[in-house]
Simulated assay, not measured.
Amino acid sequence: MNGRRAAAVVAVAVLAVLSGCAGFSVDVDERTSGGPTASAPDATNGTTATVVEVVDGDTIDVRYANGSTDTVRLLGVDTPEVHADNDPSEYEGVPDTEAGAACLEAAGENASAFAREWLAGARVTLVTDPAADRRDRYDRLLAYVHVAPAGEETPANETATADGVDFNERLVATGRARVYDSTFARSDGYYAAESEAQAAGRGLWRCRTPGTDGADGTDGSGSEWTDGGLSMSDAPLARSDSGLTVERIEADAAGNDHENPNGEYVVFGNDGDASLALGGWVVRDEGGHSYAFPGGFALGPGETVTLRTGTGADTGDTLYWGSDSAVWNNGGDAVVVERDGEVVLRYAYG
Rank of each mutant, 00 (worst) to 15 (best):
S25W: 07
V26F: 06
V26D: 06
D27A: 10
D29M: 12
R31F: 13
R31K: 13
R31E: 12
T32L: 10
T32H: 10
T32W: 10
T32G: 01
S33V: 08
S33W: 04
G34F: 06
P36S: 12
P36D: 14
P36Q: 04
P36H: 05
T37K: 03
S39P: 00
S39Y: 00
S39D: 15
D42N: 14
A43V: 11
N45K: 12
N45I: 08
G46W: 09
T48D: 13
T48E: 15
T48H: 12
T48R: 15
V52C: 06
E53A: 15
E53L: 10
V54I: 11
D56Q: 11
G57C: 05
T59N: 13
T59F: 02
I60L: 15
I60E: 02
V62C: 13
V62W: 11
V62G: 08
Y64W: 11
A65T: 12
N66G: 09
N66A: 10
G67V: 11
G67M: 04
G67H: 04
T69D: 14
T69L: 03
T69E: 12
D70G: 14
T71A: 13
V72S: 08
L74I: 14
L75H: 05
D78G: 01
P80W: 01
H83F: 09
H83L: 04
H83E: 11
A84N: 06
A84E: 13
A84K: 09
A84M: 01
N86M: 07
P88F: 03
P88I: 03
S89L: 12
E90L: 13
Y91C: 01
E92A: 13
E92N: 12
G93V: 11
T97E: 09
E98H: 02
G100T: 07
G100E: 05
A101F: 00
A101H: 01
A101I: 02
A101V: 02
L104R: 01
L104G: 02
E105Q: 13
E105K: 12
G108V: 01
E109R: 15
N110K: 13
F114L: 13
A115I: 06
R116G: 15
R116S: 13
E117Y: 05
E117H: 14
E117M: 08
W118T: 02
L119W: 02
L119T: 07
A120Q: 11
A120C: 00
A122C: 06
R123H: 03
V124H: 03
V124F: 06
V124P: 05
T125F: 08
L126C: 09
D129T: 02
P130G: 02
D133F: 01
R135K: 11
D136S: 06
D136E: 07
Y138E: 10
D139Q: 09
L142H: 03
L142Q: 07
